[in-house]
Structure formats: structure tokens, C-alpha cells
């Protein structure tokens, strides 16, 4: 109820009618799994360095049509981010202007639900670009992987500690690493997590 109100409000603020499709209800059978790499953890001042995304249809990741882009940041890249992502200044010197990347990204995603690991963070980062460019936040439905995992992994008590680190999830689900950490590889691995979790039953409580 609240979300539909919010959505209507958002749509009202859209300043480019070309993107009104983002607000259509989605009726297909695909989702987009995405991952971003950023200069830091604060959507207000940090920037996106790269975006990797893949469509998932049924039990298949459409890898060949993957979306992969590098963005040219305005500010400096923090030491910390260099450490986490292994991206250096020189790596993104041939990055594109966000004005060129974001419209392509929106066309790729369309109104599909978006899946990711701590996806709300990626959504906020992306929204700070879309707000500037088309007046609205990214309105797509979000599916949170750590939550999907938690619902299926929790066995006994709702208070039990569940380790939700990305690598732990990969390991517990016995999924292989495909290449090094980068936005697209992490998106593909997130998609594998999503596909595997979809085939597993949710924990419904000890007495259900």
C-alpha cells in the first residue's frame, strides 16, 4: 500500500516520459542480477566505478548478453576502495561518462525485478544517478539474496546466528568461484546463488 503510493509519487516526479516503462508492472519471467563497485559506502558522496548485470530467465543466466560498464568518477578513489576492488585510477581512465552508461543500463534492466547481495545499497547508489538524470529513484522491485539465504538456511531457532558473508554463502551452497572479484563476475555468482536458493525450500518455522 505504502509502496504503491510511493511508486505513484515517484512516477509523478519522472521528468523523462521515455522511462515511464520503469513503472509498468512486470509480467515476464526474468530478473536482473546486479553488482556495482563503488568508491565507498556513502551513496551521498561516493561514486559507482563499475556495473555488472546479467538477466536470468528460468534457470539460465544469459551470460552472453551481460551488461558491463566502467564509469569515470569525478572525485578521487579512496585507498580503501582500491584495496577492496583492486581498481586503480588508471583502470577507470577509459571509463565512460555516467550520462552515457545509465540510460543503457536502464534499457537493459527495464521493469524487471532486481536481485542482489545487499541490493538496497546498489539501488541507492544507482538512484543517486537516476535522480539527477531522470528525476526518480530506481523503482524496480528488489530481491535481497542474504534474506533469501537466511530464510532457507535457518534450521532451528529464529534467533540463531547465520553468517551472511558473501563468501560464506557461496561456500555453504557449494558454488564455484568463476574468476576474480569484479562487478560482472560477482553478478554472475549472485545469480548462481539466486538460482540455487530458488530450488531450495524455505524454512517455515518448527511447528508449521
Amino acid at each position: 500500500m505504502i509502496s504503491s503510493f510511493r511508486k505513484a509519487w515517484q512516477k509523478h516526479r519522472l521528468n523523462d516520459p521515455k522511462y515511464s516503462y520503469l513503472f509498468e508492472p512486470y509480467e515476464g519471467d526474468e530478473v536482473v542480477v546486479l553488482d556495482t563497485e563503488t568508491t565507498g559506502m556513502d551513496p551521498k558522496k561516493d561514486e559507482i566505478l563499475s556495473i555488472g548485470a546479467v538477466k536470468v530467465r528460468g534457470n539460465r543466466i544469459l551470460f552472453g548478453e551481460a551488461f558491463e560498464a566502467w564509469l569515470k568518477p569525478r572525485g578521487e578513489i579512496s585507498e580503501e576502495s582500491i584495496k577492496i576492488h583492486g581498481i586503480r585510477r588508471m583502470d577507470i581512465e577509459h571509463g565512460e561518462e555516467p550520462e552515457a552508461v545509465i540510460p543503457r543500463f536502464l534499457d537493459f534492466v527495464g521493469n524487471r525485478p532486481i536481485v542482489g547481495y545487499y541490493i538496497r545499497f546498489d539501488q541507492r547508489m544507482l538512484s543517486s544517478y537516476t535522480r539527477r538524470m531522470i528525476g526518480v529513484e530506481l523503482p524496480n522491485e528488489l530481491i535481497e539474496l542474504s534474506e533469501m539465504y537466511y530464510r532457507r538456511h535457518r534450521k532451528s531457532s529464529p534467533h540463531e546466528f547465520v553468517d551472511l558473508k558473501f563468501d560464506t554463502i557461496m561456500e555453504n551452497l557449494d558454488l564455484p568461484r568463476l574468476g576474480k572479484h569484479d562487478a560482472l563476475n560477482d553478478a554472475v555468482m549472485s545469480a548462481l546463488i539466486y538460482l540455487k536458493l530458488k530450488t531450495m525450500p524455505e524454512y517455515k518455522g518448527a511447528f508449521s
Binding site: N59, R60, I61, L62, F63, G64, E65, V188, A191, L192, L195, K196, T199
Partner: peptide, 11 residues
């Protein structure tokens, strides 16, 4: 070939 590749999961 890489642009035609799909990755699938089957339980």
C-alpha cells in the same frame, strides 16, 4: 562464442 554463452543451474 562467449557472447552466446549461458550459465545454467540444475538441482
Amino acid at each position: 562464442l562467449v557472447t552466446k554463452l549461458e550459465i545454467a543451474f540444475y538441482p
